[in-house]
Simulated assay, not measured.
Amino acid sequence: MMKNKYAFILLFIIVLGLLAGCTSGEADPDGDGKIKIIAAHNQTSPDNPYQTGMLKFKEVAEAESNGTIEVEVHAGTIGTEESQLVEKLQLGAADVVLVSPGFMTQTGMREVDLFSAPYLFTSYEHWLKAVDGEVGKEMADIINEKSDNSFKLLGYWSAGVRHYYGKKPIESVEDLEGLSLRTQTSGVVSDFWQATGAIPSGISWGELYQGLQQDVVDSSENAYPFFVQQAHHTTPNGKYITETGHDYTTRFLLINGEKFDQYSKEHQEIILKAAEASVKAERDATNAQDVEYKEKAIEEGAIVNEIDTQPFIDIARPILEDFAKEIEVEALLQKIIDLE
């Protein structure tokens, strides 16, 4: 009887050990102290700043770990839609991904959509103060807590400054009246453009060049590196660029929080260091391309004009305040406004 009891206890201990091994094996499947990280974004162009950032992440992680961390970078090859990347992150088929605030709301975190609102930030310096300061830390906590640690924020990347481009230049808000504009067709972004008199259109990004070329849509809005790489400025309805600067864009670099917690302390510190390096590399690349692709657009016949953005800001501010109240982030909005 006593023998059976000890045998049972021994079996119980062995089972516990096996279970513990299985858990840690998710982060280190071979048990040799090495881990492989699948890092992915949705842009297919090798010249895109996202690729620059991911390659810097890989470079630093592998160098600092002396090869105990291997990073495999995917540029649109495991998903060109953010929904695909987040699904892979949740399932463990990807470890580090890049997504936008607008998409994150689909996961139940409405608070992050504040970063999508037009004229939330009035300059690049204003954006930096927010995301690299207390506001950024607070948003990171929201993402981690609301996702039950499924998502851990590693850093804030930029996707440039978004401007209007279309079939005619914009000299005043009134010039937008009745123009169809490719943008979000619901939410705070749509509310803003409707308030200017424009008509939001949901044409897909992949079909936009043809849509601008064939007069399906009058205009669109995006940052220079993105729409110039797609040659939108060479179409009749993309030729005129007005620098509205309505969105200093934010992108979230995420890692699976549960998996991150399984890594060794040393590997965690290296991943955070690599993420910090990737943030700088991606932002620098984006800022450089903002200048480079603006020059390219002008050289290829696009016409660029600047505009007084204050009337646009005046339209956006009450919409922004109502939206912040709706998603219960009034205090966070005020902190951002105070940083101007």
Rank of each mutant, 00 (worst) to 15 (best):
T68L: 04
K36Y: 03
L339Y: 10
S123T: 14
Q214V: 09
D47A: 10
V86A: 11
R182M: 09
K58L: 04
P236S: 13
E269V: 05
L114C: 00
V112P: 02
Y119F: 14
P169A: 07
T52K: 15
R283F: 05
T80D: 14
G133E: 04
T68I: 05
Y124I: 12
V15E: 07
A324P: 06
E171R: 14
E276G: 06
F121P: 12
D175V: 01
T52P: 14
D338R: 04
E177A: 13
H126C: 07
M1T: 15
Q210L: 09
Q184T: 13
I315T: 10
L154C: 01
V217S: 01
G211L: 06
D284N: 13
T250M: 04
K129H: 13
H246Y: 13
K239S: 07
D338P: 04
W193F: 14
P101M: 09
E258M: 00
P236W: 09
D191K: 01
T122A: 14
N305M: 05
A61L: 07
E81G: 08
R283G: 07
G155E: 05
F12I: 15
I37D: 05
E328D: 14
S83K: 15
Y164H: 11
A302N: 02
C22M: 13
Q184C: 10
G245M: 13
E295Y: 11
W205V: 15
F121T: 14
A140F: 04
D175L: 01
I271T: 05
I319S: 04
I313D: 07
V96E: 03
L154T: 05
N42T: 05
L208T: 15
G211A: 13
I241F: 04
